[in-house]
Nucleic acid binder design. Structure first.
Lengths: 154, 154
DNA sequence: TATTGTTATACTCTATAACTATA
DNA sequence: TATAGTTATAGAGTATAACAATA
């Protein structure tokens, strides 16, 4: 009590959303910076990680998981293919689609360079938090990142 | 034990950072959507909020607080000025700089439309969390959003 | 008819560099 | 000389629409 609804709205607008944005921006900057030495962007690393987790996927499916349009995926995969990190295999069940897969070089780069690099950034970034806070944060963000009930993918 | 360093790195890379990004993106989408009815963008709302908090500021100072270049600020302020939400007053101490200030219309729009709108988005977005989780989240994000020691503004 | 990948195209966002007026 | 604002411009990044091959 003593705080009007308008004041509450003002305070709320100032809190979680802005902090979430600021924190995400701060982390992204650090990640881009760390990856710069490898010539890869954060998004490209994301493609590799998705493939590492899920195995061969079509370009469109990768895009779906990263919220990237299929037309945008073309150039993204081009870059990774030129560097020999992924290969455009054909999906034998549906010959319209590719089966984009990690090459050996891609797997090695992930394991020996990219993951350690990003892990170090995370370490420095989240290092200010205690273990309990980090666990809390992961759990809470997991709740927020999931789509709310009744709002699945199209 | 039983988890290699490489495996740890892989897991770590998969956790906080991605979640942070996903959550921020999800929230931003909802905010942009909610603001669309007002014809304002998330960034423009940000300018108004900064002015409401700090009082009249130069364009460059607003940009500093929002991580926006001064050349980019020009158009941003143009839009808000055309809509009558801010005014370009002159800083009497330094006549090179403007003193951008909220107009009465700007203050009213914030109080009666924009803050309630964004507060509702926050409410729906963070509504899945309990009160304790929300408090936790705000506190932890506050730690992360702050620049680490020895990395202040230029 | 619908879908995958592709291309051309356009649009948004942003920053860089050069200019002006003040300091 | 340095700084606030401005402008022109160019570079990312992205999406839309139309097309070929396949379903």
């Amino acid at each position: 009590m003593g705080v009007s609804e308008e004041e509450q709205a003002r305070l709320l607008a100032r809190s979680t959303g802005w902090l979430l944005n600021d924190a995400a921006r701060a982390l992204n900057q650090r990640l881009e910076e760390a990856l710069r030495a490898t010539g890869l962007r954060w998004r490209e690393y994301g493609v590799l990680v998705v493939l590492e987790e899920a195995g061969p996927l079509s370009q469109q499916e990768i895009g779906r998981r990263l919220a990237v349009d299929r037309s945008t995926m073309v150039h993204l995969v081009d870059v990774l293919e030129e560097r020999g990190l992924v290969a455009r295999g054909r999906d034998r069940a549906d010959r319209r689609a590719y089966a984009i897969e990690l090459t050996g070089a891609g797997q090695e780069l992930l394991a020996h360079v990219l993951h350690p690099l990003t892990a170090e950034v995370h370490e420095r970034f989240a290092g200010r938090l205690g273990r309990r806070d980090r666990a809390h944060l992961d759990r809470i963000l997991g709740l927020l990142a999931a789509p709310p009930a009744g709002e699945g993918p199209a």
